[in-house]
Design a protein around this nucleic acid. Sequence first.
DNA 1: CAGTGGTCTAGACCACTAT
DNA 2: TAGTGGTCTAGACCACTGA
Lengths: 258, 258
Amino acid sequence: MKNEGIGQTWMLDKSSPIPVYYQLARLIEKEIIAGRLKPGESLPPEYETADHFGISRMTVRRAYSELIAAGMVFSERGKGTFVAKPKLEDVEFELDDFDDATPTPKSEKGKQVKLLSAKIVRADEKLASKLAVEINTRCLHFKMLITIDNTPLAYENKYIVFTKQSPILEQELKDPSLSNLASIGGHHILTTGKRVFRASIVTEEEAVLLKVNRQTPVFLVEQTVYDNEKKPIGWGKSIYRGDRYRLTTYTGWSLSDR
Amino acid sequence: MKNEGIGQTWMLDKSSPIPVYYQLARLIEKEIIAGRLKPGESLPPEYETADHFGISRMTVRRAYSELIAAGMVFSERGKGTFVAKPKLEDVEFELDDFDDATPTPKSEKGKQVKLLSAKIVRADEKLASKLAVEINTRCLHFKMLITIDNTPLAYENKYIVFTKQSPILEQELKDPSLSNLASIGGHHILTTGKRVFRASIVTEEEAVLLKVNRQTPVFLVEQTVYDNEKKPIGWGKSIYRGDRYRLTTYTGWSLSDR
DNA sequence: CAGTGGTCTAGACCACTAT
DNA sequence: TAGTGGTCTAGACCACTGA
């Protein structure tokens, strides 16, 4: 978990108009993105980094703070500062209890992800454009069904760019989130993701899989996962039962509840 | 726009285990929430606050930073630090161009909000529970239709607790967002809001209003706006055409694009 | 115990804004 | 020019962690 300093050479330009703390933060960000600083590993302690670059500890703290605010690292008093695990799937849906009166959040126990199929496909025009690859490029395709207590809740289709060294390990399919799937194929740490939510109605096929009536409302969720270089490496289209899922957002001020 | 210092008396306890910067931030937050520091007004300059409380300027900066991070204030170099206008409706839907290939965001020009009705109603059981008031409490009820180029896009029902001094001014109904509506009735600055999104299907009534077919998918958006004391003061239920609206979220790391 | 991050100080110089 | 926020320093003491 230890780490041997950041950047062999001086890469901080104190005479630059760009603040030192920002230069340092970006430098560390690059180390993380490049994979030379991996999730779980520790950053050099503040004193050390300050020494190494000949800057004040407060300036180092400012740099670390930026990374903390971005969610890339976290610190623990008395222990150190560590690279965080990227959380791409953190805008999770909640299961809708669907009873307006009782805000009791149902437990997600019994939640299961069933892999319906996993195969290699050739990108058609649409998929090729989503993944920004040539048509006919080979991609991994996963179909999954999410159930709770054997009731189907969601149906997911996920595609990731196929990169030769992609042995599909049973083990890695236990949590087939797009970000985990993408990490199978030697891809780097993921940096960003995008989700688009639409309100829609089940198709025939989906109705059968989800065991719901025709005309059942659903969330249609399109998710793209990007590379370090912001190139798409994964794309997915999921159907969430509108009668079981909801999405909640909070806005506004308040120091108190943060 | 000037302001005469924060807190007449010493309210900072330097011997407390609670950090001074945090005490100060909360103190200023209270001033803002209480309305003694209004949006647009300036906070005392950093030097002055530091002097006033006998603390270092860096500590004041840390406090101000917390408020900036919370979105309550903002600073401008050379000018000062100012109380921000609360933005409650900032998780706006985007108009869906609905053509997957072209990500050209349609302009929202021609967008109009038509007030269908505005009246005083008595809270039924459901509304009473949403607004945390007694059944039969009087509330203002607004029905609105949002159109663009005369095409209906969304239908909104909003309720706010009626507080006697609520002269409904035409002028204030031009932008009938919940937070603006709520400010009509002498309510304080709003602090927080919650939105719940569901996927659903239009009712008969809504289909007529929105001029869409039966079975059209829609977003059902429930919004609650809270008081400084976190008591609900407004509640709304809106229907957004699923074929014209979408919701986008971004997740993950990256210092670069912030 | 030594090592870490958390807070705080009392200065400093700078860039920007307004007058 | 005076006033503001933005950055940075070189210390300090503390609370917490782990061996």
